[in-house]
Design a protein around this nucleic acid. Structure first.
Lengths: 164, 164
DNA sequence: GCACGATGCTTTAGATTTAAAGCATCCTCT
DNA sequence: AGAGGATGCTTTAAATCTAAAGCATCGTGC
């Protein structure tokens, strides 16, 4: 008998705890941006405020890990609120270039610091060293989980690769 | 400007990585139980298989961290599939007592090992020591995030002054 | 008894979510 | 050029998900 304290494998146990921590923080994060925005809307706008040059749906889909079809609805509502605008992509007529409007930037100027403060407060009772360790280990984990990058050497570029 | 390499506070950075890891694992977990069940349905049934004595909606709501109204629909579909049944609670006519049916237990006997294996595989490239550390740190974090238990001492809290 | 707040579950409205199908456009190869 | 496959976005169907309102029941205090 190795470990008989009610946990199957260490990995599964990590997943269960990760789920719990995620959901607990998620609640706080939601309340931190409501009722001004929903959390998914905030996530989209936070990405846009990091990239003033504009972002396509596919970029957003990859960085936020949500399906493209999902973004259609979220962005549509943000456009309706006048917080996000889409321009034509200069070299690809299929693609859109999403940006924050002035009103969107204004709103994020107010929300981003508040959100950062609220999240930071959740971790404040945890010792600094542990937070740093957790950060490092989660970095390792995501690195292992993410699909290996396409190995862009000088030889082969991806055929049909629009945005490598 | 003190903007380091894209990091505000350590806590916020942990949250961002936690989100990423969660979503990456979530995808695998979903594919691990589909198309037999959806992941929320699996989560409900996994709870039920741990507690053969039966569970109420409120119990489920608290252990899975989802809203009670949400469970209504999930359980209704599982009942429709014949995987879950509800009995009358013996001492509280409002409450329900949810249990797996024989078919539900059969299904979980097949799904649980597969799911555990699939999740464990995700962590297999990570050194054992790191997995153990991550498990410990996430445990600490969850403890800090969870609301303190009601502190059932000799004094009964709630003499009617809840939120009038 | 019995009023009255608390609790357990359901319903409702609106937003998110995915997978899959569909359309327009792009890119490469012949 | 033109065919054929890949990409970018939207639409659709079905399931989650939350917050809030609603209903029935419980439990306590008067």
């Amino acid at each position: 008998m190795k470990t008989r304290t009610g946990n199957g494998s260490p990995g599964l146990s990590v997943w269960l705890r990760l789920m719990k921590a995620y959901n607990l923080i998620l609640r706080e994060a939601r309340h931190s941006v409501e009722p001004s925005l929903t959390l998914p809307q905030f996530d989209v706008m936070a990405q846009l405020s990091r990239r003033p040059e504009g972002v396509t749906f596919v970029d957003l889909s990859r960085s936020l890990l949500v399906s493209p079809g999902n973004l259609t609805g979220i962005v549509r509502r943000l456009e309706g609120e006048g917080l996000v605008a889409r321009e034509a992509h200069e070299s690809d007529r299929r693609a859109a270039r999403l940006r924050l409007t002035a009103a969107g930037r204004r709103k994020m100027s107010a929300l981003l610091p508040r959100h950062a403060r609220d999240i930071a407060r959740l971790f404040s009772p945890m010792p600094r060293g542990e937070v740093a360790q957790l950060r490092r280990l989660l970095g390792n984990l995501t690195h292992l989980l993410e699909p290996a990058p396409p190995a862009v050497t000088a030889v082969a570029r991806k055929p049909g690769g629009g945005t490598p």
